[in-house]
Simulated scan of single mutants.
Amino acid sequence: MTDHSGTRLKRPTIYDVAQRAGVSHQTVARIVRGDEGFRPETRERVAAAIAELGYVPNVTARTLATQRSHRIAALTYEMDQVGPIEVIRAASQAAREAGYLLDIITLEPDRDESIDEALALINQQDLAGVIALIPTESIADALTGATFRVPVLMERSDSVQNPEQGLDLGAAGVLVATQHLLSLGHKRLFHVGGPEKWLASHGRSRAFTAALQAEQLQPVGARFGGWSARAGYEIGLTLPVDEVTAVVAANDQIALGVIHALHERGIGVPEQISVTGVDDIAEAAYFYPPLTTTKIDVASVGRRAVEQLLRKIEPARSGPITEPAAPLLHVRKSTTPPRG
């Protein structure tokens, strides 16, 4: 680290944090490690001191002292998509707060040999544990039969259940969006889903159908495609627009593609067809029209996975496990009651 003049500065140590917080360095070490038994005000003082000083625990020193690795790996996929990125970002932060480093190993769901390559890489590394984020049944089967040298937590995509709906997070988001359209009076709805092989796609599709069946309605139709705007666009070009008054997209990128295709076909959104998404990405409020969507707590998937894995690595570790927040509906300009 350097100051504005370029002079190299001394990195803050655990002793600096202890002095700033008014506690012993042993207390700082135990709080950083995640130990329980400290008063909230003590934890807050230590957290504030760490933030003020920019203290970063020396993972290498901890590994040498404890003879235990403080690196964990995350097997993930589709890092060009918003959901997986948010999951990994939250997992990385949770790991760092617990004194661990998170290594990211990317799988390619459509290339089976990428699983073998990832497993070989994992078993060559000095790791404390592995989080496997599973998008498809085939990857679930492959990893279930694999041999790992360290504790493993297998977490299916969208698998954390929302406590209010009792549904997977993505499915709960689709349910809320569909119920919003039903409340506006829509009865002829179409679902544009994600990739057909993905577990998350099927969860969201089932939630869409269940919401309609609760009102004794049937979908006009549903199609799987992909998570991208291109996939939504291609399906949007073939939508039976004379039969549909609303589209429930499985995520915001799909919704963007659908809206673009409808505009090209001369179909007004929402004047003729309403469209909803899921995720509430940063750009959703700036679509044309601004997108009605549901915000789902995907970050809880990553944070919760790290917390559960660390319980396997350190059986004595305690503390709460993250619970996801309920989906939050953001009503914007892409939905309105059906004409007539």
Results as ranks from 00 to 15, higher is better:
residue 312 K to R: 14
residue 317 R to E: 09
residue 99 G to S: 05
residue 309 L to D: 09
residue 43 R to F: 03
residue 314 E to Y: 14
residue 197 K to N: 14
residue 319 G to L: 14
residue 59 V to P: 09
residue 312 K to D: 11
residue 49 A to W: 05
residue 208 F to L: 13
residue 167 L to F: 08
residue 244 V to D: 01
residue 166 G to Q: 14
residue 14 I to F: 07
residue 246 A to F: 10
residue 103 D to C: 00
residue 95 A to L: 08
residue 128 A to N: 09
residue 17 V to M: 02
residue 105 I to L: 15
residue 114 S to K: 08
residue 186 H to V: 07
residue 27 T to K: 03
residue 279 D to T: 09
residue 194 G to N: 11
residue 229 A to V: 03
residue 289 P to I: 08
residue 252 D to C: 11
residue 164 E to A: 12
residue 199 L to N: 04
residue 229 A to P: 07
residue 248 V to Y: 06
residue 20 R to H: 01
residue 144 T to N: 15
residue 254 I to T: 06
residue 41 E to M: 00
residue 236 G to I: 05
residue 83 G to L: 11
residue 23 V to S: 02
residue 333 K to R: 15
residue 222 A to G: 12
residue 193 G to L: 08
residue 25 H to M: 05
residue 175 L to F: 10
residue 265 R to K: 13
residue 233 Y to T: 03
residue 78 E to H: 08
residue 206 R to S: 12
residue 320 P to L: 11
residue 288 Y to T: 12
residue 215 E to L: 07
residue 232 G to K: 03
residue 88 I to N: 10
residue 4 H to N: 13
residue 332 R to W: 00
residue 224 F to H: 15
residue 11 R to P: 08
residue 195 P to D: 14
residue 245 T to Y: 06
residue 53 L to H: 06
residue 219 P to N: 05
residue 30 R to C: 03
residue 15 Y to G: 07
residue 78 E to Y: 08
residue 183 S to P: 00
residue 191 H to L: 01
residue 46 V to P: 11
residue 59 V to S: 09
residue 185 G to H: 07
residue 159 S to A: 15
residue 115 I to A: 13
residue 222 A to Y: 15
residue 12 P to K: 06
residue 9 L to V: 14
residue 258 V to N: 10
residue 75 L to C: 11
residue 224 F to R: 05
residue 213 Q to D: 06
residue 51 A to L: 10
residue 158 D to S: 15
residue 171 A to N: 09
residue 295 K to R: 15
residue 307 E to K: 06
residue 37 G to C: 05
residue 92 S to W: 01
residue 290 P to A: 04
residue 44 E to G: 01
residue 196 E to C: 11
residue 288 Y to F: 12
residue 82 V to T: 15
residue 324 P to Y: 08
residue 325 A to R: 14
residue 94 A to F: 03
residue 152 V to E: 09
residue 3 D to E: 06
residue 111 R to G: 00
residue 166 G to R: 13
residue 315 P to E: 07
residue 153 L to I: 15
residue 15 Y to P: 00
residue 7 T to M: 11
residue 131 I to Y: 00
residue 133 L to K: 01
residue 79 M to G: 01
residue 131 I to H: 02
residue 323 E to L: 14
residue 113 E to Q: 10
residue 53 L to F: 13
residue 264 E to A: 08
residue 262 L to C: 11
residue 120 A to E: 15
residue 326 A to H: 04
residue 138 S to Y: 07
residue 208 F to I: 13
residue 320 P to F: 10
residue 72 I to K: 03
residue 278 V to T: 13
residue 36 E to L: 10
residue 151 P to D: 06
residue 297 D to M: 01
residue 37 G to V: 04
residue 260 H to V: 12
residue 37 G to R: 01
residue 291 L to M: 12
residue 12 P to L: 11
residue 257 G to E: 01
residue 160 V to N: 06
residue 135 P to W: 02
residue 285 A to V: 15
residue 140 A to C: 00
residue 37 G to I: 02
residue 325 A to P: 00
residue 106 T to G: 00
residue 336 T to E: 12
residue 267 I to W: 07
residue 198 W to G: 09
residue 187 K to P: 02
residue 140 A to W: 04
residue 94 A to D: 10
residue 215 E to R: 15
residue 91 A to K: 06
residue 124 Q to W: 00
residue 8 R to G: 01
residue 285 A to Y: 01
residue 60 T to K: 08
residue 166 G to S: 12
residue 271 E to A: 10
residue 21 A to L: 10
residue 187 K to V: 02
residue 95 A to H: 09
residue 34 G to P: 04
residue 249 A to M: 11
residue 167 L to V: 03
residue 189 L to C: 02
residue 163 P to T: 04
residue 13 T to H: 03
residue 130 V to T: 04
